[in-house]
Nucleic acid binder design. Structure first.
Lengths: 264, 264
DNA sequence: TCCAAATAACTAGTATACAAGATATATTTG
DNA sequence: CAAATATATCTTGTATACTAGTTATTTGGA
């Protein structure tokens, strides 16, 4: 098998001419976890989780020294993780001064909500077009699980089910790349969401909205599915102005775009 | 002024307690270029430009040593640049083996086209809703410039004007963050576009489509503007399958999603 | 001549030392 | 005692040495 020249391999050989290096292993970009997790990746994930969970408040300094001591590693992988977080706009690096958990930019928040809405409308339309019966049953099962979590009041599991629902719609629509984009956008939104207090009955409302979306999918009505998804995702942006006044130090606020925050 | 307790400062003081570092300078994230450009940034931009321009073909090894010699800098900033490129999916890093210019994943390409369409429909709708007369005149001027470039056949300047047109629409719609997302997506699409041979009359077609979009904006018809933008952006994806056969070594191809490439 | 195993030459990942600048504290001076 | 200045101590940015794993080459055997 090592030297068999299958038609699939012939094309690859052309690129391999100068060096075998030219042909990196045919690993799918989305599935390369066989390697032992790199240290920088571990630090990155831990920090990201803590920042998104608002355990590290905006403005908190990120001191590389503390992290190197905690994980018993050198600055190099720590720095790598910090740079990734900077790419995600979760930290601000001030040269020769310090690194800080980023404040939440209100204008970006507004745009993130709009962009997510647009992309999820795409995925739900595609899902409506191609959902099989089994996939619809799977979505029903997810909603049922979310209903049970809402009944027992398990917020964490509830949000896991919430994410699963949206992820499954993207998967059914066959848009894994767009789902990645949505997740990237969700990172920005998530910190804001964590500031919202658990409102009584909100979980049941979310479940009902999910049910409405699924009904439209099952009825093969793409327009209705998109519309209901739109309404569902709109619920988040109700009171940006309120939180800006409650935690002013958590946000960055650009007065030039004030009016934008109030419009749809 | 150092210790005056204005109401605005009181909130900030809370975060400043442990160290003054807690309050990073109130710089807008989008405007921090006073610093001398970091070496890693220079390397990143140069490599990204070369990759996007297809000067570095997919599969080409990126050798850090060559770059450190060329720029007379150490591996650290080079490595930083390479990691950024990996984030952008422009290179694949194979641990302990090598770094290579990434092959273009056809499935990602399809999703990128869909996502860009969705986001540009958002920006053009917003632009239609709030464009001032002067902004419409500005857009007309951009199209006129693009027309002149099409007439003289200056491809590079033509594409600059093309980008300006889309950028200005996003700016008019007040979605700078969404424009950033679109640009990120464009990176993926751009390499593919570079493979398309200049077709006779294509530039004039693009100009005409831009004119159609602008007319809809000027007529305050958001639905029509979005529809025309949709059609305009659809022109790109005509012949993915053709290029896959022409340069098979430039692409990664997932047979599980074959049929997806053919649908809208 | 061909194939296989040992070896050499590469790669990215990591650790550490140092440099340059910003901030905090201590000191001096009026 | 207050304010300005000088010093010390932080921070991130960079350079370099080293480690571990991968790939290419050489060498030995049949």
């Amino acid at each position: 098998m090592t030297q068999s020249s299958t038609p699939a391999a012939s094309a690859r050989e052309k690129a391999r001419k100068p060096r075998a290096h030219n042909a990196p292993p045919g690993i799918d970009i989305h599935a390369r976890a066989p390697q032992p997790a790199k240290n920088s990746e571990v630090v990155y994930r831990d920090l990201r989780r803590a920042i998104i969970a608002m355990e590290l408040a905006p403005g908190t300094p990120i001191v590389e020294k503390e992290i190197t001591d905690k994980y018993r590693i050198s600055r190099t992988p720590v720095r790598e993780a910090v740079l990734k977080l900077a790419e995600d706009r979760l930290v601000d690096v001030v040269p020769k001064s310090g690194t800080f958990v980023a404040r939440i930019p209100l204008t970006i928040l507004r745009e993130a909500l709009v962009a997510r809405r647009a992309l999820e409308e795409v995925t739900v339309r595609a899902a409506t077009a191609r959902a099989s019966e089994s996939q619809i049953m799977h979505l029903r099962a997810i909603i049922q699980r979310q209903q049970e979590m809402a009944d027992t009041g398990d917020e964490k599991a509830f949000h896991r089910a919430d994410e699963d629902f949206h992820a499954e719609i993207a998967a059914v629509g066959r848009f894994p790349g767009i789902w990645d984009m949505i997740q990237q956008i969700r990172i920005q939104i998530e910190r804001y969401r964590r500031l919202t207090l658990p409102q009584k009955g909100r979980m049941q409302l979310v479940v009902n909205e999910h049910k409405a979306v699924l009904e439209a999918i099952a009825g093969r009505d793409a327009d209705q599915a998109a519309s209901r998804m739109h309404d569902h995702l709109n619920k988040l942006q109700l009171d940006i102005a309120v939180f800006r006044d409650l935690w002013p130090e958590y946000f960055i606020y650009d007065p030039a775009l004030d009016d934008d925050l109030l419009m749809d």
